[in-house]
C-alpha cells in the first residue's frame, strides 16, 4: 500500500488524533497527538492489510525553540509482508514528558524506549524495565536534548572526575615502589 493511503487510513480511523501529514522525498510522516498512540499502534500492527510487524526504529527528537510541544517520539514502522514504511511522530510536551510504551506490541521497542528515556528524558508508561541504557546510571540530565550544556562552566581542574583521579593518585602513593 502507498504510504499516503496508510496516512489516509489513520486519519479516517483516528480523526481527532492526526495533526498533520507531511511528505518528503516519497516518505510520509504522520504527526500525532500522544494520548491514543497505543491504540493507533495496535491498529497498524493488527490490521492484516497493513501488518506493520516490524518496528524499525523508535527515537526521540528535540525541537527546542523551534516548535511547541518541543519533544517528539518518532516511530518508523515497516511491514516485511507488504513492504511499506511509515513514519509516525508523536508530540510530547516538556512538562508532561511521558507516553505509552509499545513494548507489548513490539518487544524490540524495549531498548529503544530505554534509550529514548536515557537521552531525552521521556518516560514510557507501562515499560517493564525503564532504566538508563547508554549513560551511567547516576548520570544527570538527558544529553540529546538541545539545551543540554556542551561544556561545563567549571575549569578543567575543578571537574569532579579530575579531582577524583587526583585524590586516588594521592592515596595510591603509599603503594609506590621505591
Amino acid at each position: 500500500m502507498e504510504p499516503k493511503d496508510i496516512a489516509e487510513q489513520i486519519k479516517e480511523k483516528f480523526a481527532g488524533e492526526v495533526k498533520e501529514v507531511s511528505e518528503f522525498r516519497g516518505q510520509v510522516a504522520v504527526i500525532l497527538k500522544k494520548d491514543r498512540i497505543k491504540e493507533i499502534m495496535r491498529f497498524l500492527h493488527g490490521t492484516p492489510e497493513l501488518n506493520f510487524n516490524y518496528l524499525v526504529d523508535l527515537c526521540g527528537v528535540d525541537y527546542w525553540g523551534k516548535k511547541e510541544p518541543r519533544l517528539e517520539v518518532v516511530y518508523h514502522l515497516y511491514s516485511i509482508e507488504h513492504r511499506h514504511l511509515i513514519r509516525l511522530r508523536a508530540e510530547v510536551a516538556e512538562e508532561d514528558a511521558s507516553i505509552d510504551s509499545v513494548v507489548d506490541i513490539w518487544a524490540g521497542a524495549n531498548w529503544h524506549e530505554r534509550e529514548c528515556f536515557d537521552l531525552f528524558g521521556i518516560t514510557f508508561k507501562g515499560h517493564p524495565d525503564l532504566r538508563r541504557v547508554l549513560m551511567p546510571e547516576d548520570w544527570e540530565g538527558h544529553p540529546l536534548r538541545k539545551d543540554y550544556p556542551l561544556r561545563s562552566d567549571l575549569g578543567e581542574r575543578e571537574w569532579p572526575g579530575f579531582q577524583e583521579v587526583v585524590k586516588l593518585s594521592e592515596k595510591n602513593k603509599a603503594y609506590e615502589v621505591r
Partner: peptide
C-alpha cells in the same frame, strides 16, 4: 539493518542524526 534518520533544518549541519544500529537491537534480544 543500519538506518540513518536525518532531520535537516537547511543549515550545513544535521539538526538530528539518529542511528538505528543492528547490534543494539540484537544485544537487547
Amino acid at each position: 539493518e543500519l538506518g540513518f534518520y536525518i532531520i535537516s533544518d537547511g543549515s550545513g549541519k544535521p539538526y538530528r542524526m539518529r542511528l538505528r544500529s543492528p547490534s543494539f537491537v540484537h544485544v537487547s534480544a
